[in-house]
Nucleic acid binder design. Structure first.
Length: 490
RNA sequence: GGCGCAUUCGUCUAGCGGCCCAGGACGCCGCCCUCUCAAGGCGGAGAUCAGGGGUUCGAAUCCCCUAUGCGCUACCA
């Protein structure tokens, strides 16, 4: 087993985290737990313009919902803090000064307008858009003038003009780019905040991160980071670039693709352990057949070597299947009830009295377990258990096999027999009704169908006798009485 | 445009030179079970392993080229 790793999840608080971000968090967390290392949460709030109020909360909430606990970071602190980059500005400033004194960087006074124009011109000429390095060669006098104009400069890195930069990525292997394809990227913005490149390299080093596990979209900027590590004299961590999660159009998954925020999955009634299981399988696999894993099993088996390299489309159908599977095979009836209850509170009509009868709800859950795929389906699937007066049309009750008179006669007989029996168990009920079917010369299909509508108001419901037992004698008699009246009164 | 990365059933994937005329899962279709709906069981269709060249006795697996897709190319991360 590999030694204890220090890994980090470093989101920026720009919105609700989507499944792609969270998959990255999950892989980092799994690796930390697998190796007995630390999982660090660092907030990359270096772009003042893009910070969204509440985003931090939804990040923390998402992680907590999944049970991805962090060893260092917001709320828990840690020996390498602060864990908000906006509180580490002095560190970046100091290191930038050091780079300045060793002539690795320079101040750039170019206006956004000039840069913009330059890029447009380059694009027009079909050239790669790159900073042209104008300020790299400023004389002392020109620098003074730049300062004198009151322009707040940015600090740019002096990318070597020649040579190549290589690094080894655990997933991709050796990667080499010519330095000439890189430009003098910005390290410190004019507002004094660092860019991702600077802050990341510094923090990962200072926080003693051993493995950088991040999405593949960062692969292209990694050579810049390697240049920085070298200039700073830092040893770079192990690089692990994770395959992207794609939308149905094979483009990088984004809000554009609809429900992608983890919070939405929670609200839609997915189980957190299902999200973990499913997300783990997006880009990672264990063997040729196993795909249902408990969190502990994932921690035990998770290995960097088994991370794939191709982007994966998020398959909602399979997620839904897995959610149903967990509910019927991995949850006890009692556990299921605990999960569904909040959705019932919220979704059942207001006329259903609260609080619900716990024993009754648990009986219902047993019948729901094989049928529910989303917790949010709870109210719709069980509503008829809670409503005294069912709403259904007479033709629904009659179906294809009965006319009013016949149905009324049958139901009256059932009513009479039902009020007589003591034992209201599934078995007794079934025995009784089957005997009746024979007695009346009815096919069980049509007879039970009639009763089903009378008791549930629906043509599709859980098994009839279990349903009757759960409802109990009193409710059943009330419902059958109503169905008879309905036929009688028209 | 430049640079980088990738390419196995519709989708997620297994496969790291012979066990593969390619295995599993979701979805789809059929049958069985059955009081409806589910669940479950069984079976089926579905991938000339992007295409073309090599290397090798032998390639999905190694090498080269092409095509396609994606990512990056900001004082965003």
């Amino acid at each position: 087993m590999p030694g204890p790793a220090r890994v980090r999840y470093a989101p920026s608080p720009t919105g609700e985290p989507h499944v792609g971000n969270i998959r990255t968090a999950l892989f980092n967390w799994l690796y930390a737990r697998h190796t007995g290392g630390q999982f660090i949460l660092r907030i990359e709030d270096t772009d003042q313009n893009r910070i969204v109020p509440g985003a931090l909360d939804s990040i923390l909430e998402s992680l907590r919902w999944l049970g991805l606990d962090w060893d260092e970071g917001p709320e828990v602190g840690g020996p390498y803090g602060p864990y908000f980059q906006s509180q580490r500005l002095h560190i970046y400033r100091e290191i930038a000064d050091r780079l300045l004194s060793q002539d690795s960087v320079y101040s750039c006074y170019c206006s956004p307008e000039r840069l913009d124009e330059m890029r447009k011109e380059q694009q027009r000429r079909k050239e790669p858009p790159k900073y042209d390095g104008q300020c790299r060669y400023l004389s002392e006098a020109e620098k003074k003038r730049g300062v004198g104009d009151g322009v707040n400069p940015v600090v740019r890195f002096k990318t070597p003009l020649e040579g190549h930069t290589s690094f080894y990525d655990l997933i991709r292997g050796e990667i080499t780019v010519a330095n000439s394809t890189l430009d003098d990227f910005v390290l410190l913005k004019s507002d004094g905040f660092p860019t991702y490149h600077l802050a990341n390299v510094i923090d990962d080093h200072l926080m003693e991160i051993t493995h950088i596990m991040r999405a593949d979209e960062w692969l292209a900027s990694t050579p810049r980071h390697m240049l920085l590590y070298r200039a700073l004299g830092f040893e770079p961590p192990v690089m692990v670039h994770l395959p992207l999660i794609l939308g149905p159009d094979r483009a990088k998954l984004s809000k554009r693709h609809g429900a992608t925020s983890l919070v939405e999955y929670k609200e839609n009634g997915f189980l957190p352990e299902v999200m973990i299981n499913f997300l783990a399988l997006l880009g990672w696999s264990f063997d040729e057949k196993t795909e249902i894993f408990s969190v502990d099993e994932l921690i035990e088996h998770f290995a960097l070597e088994r991370i794939g390299k191709t982007g994966a489309i998020f398959n909602h159908e399979k997620l839904l299947w897995m959610n149903g599977l967990y509910m019927r095979e991995r949850l006890t009836v009692h556990d299921l009830m605990g999960r569904v209850l909040p959705f019932l509170e919220q979704g059942l009509p207001p006329e259903v009295p609260r609080p619900f009868d716990g024993a009754y709800v648990e009986d219902i859950m047993a019948l729901l377990q094989d049928r529910i795929k989303l917790l949010s389906e709870g109210p719709e699937l069980t509503e008829f258990f809670f409503m005294d007066d069912l709403e259904y049309e007479t033709p629904t009750l009659l179906g294809k096999d009965f006319d009013r008179e016949r149905a009324e006669g049958i139901l009256s007989l059932v009513q009479a027999r039902l009020s007589d029996i003591e034992d209201f168990s599934t078995e007794a009920l079934e025995g009784m009704t089957r005997r009746m079917a024979e007695e009346l010369g009815l096919k069980t299909g049509s007879f039970f169908g009639l009763l089903r509508v009378a008791f549930t108001g629906r043509t599709a419901a859980p098994p009839l006798f279990e349903t009757m037992e759960a409802l109990g004698k009193e409710r059943c008699l009330y419902r059958i009485e109503r169905s008879i009246r309905k036929l009688h009164d028209g």
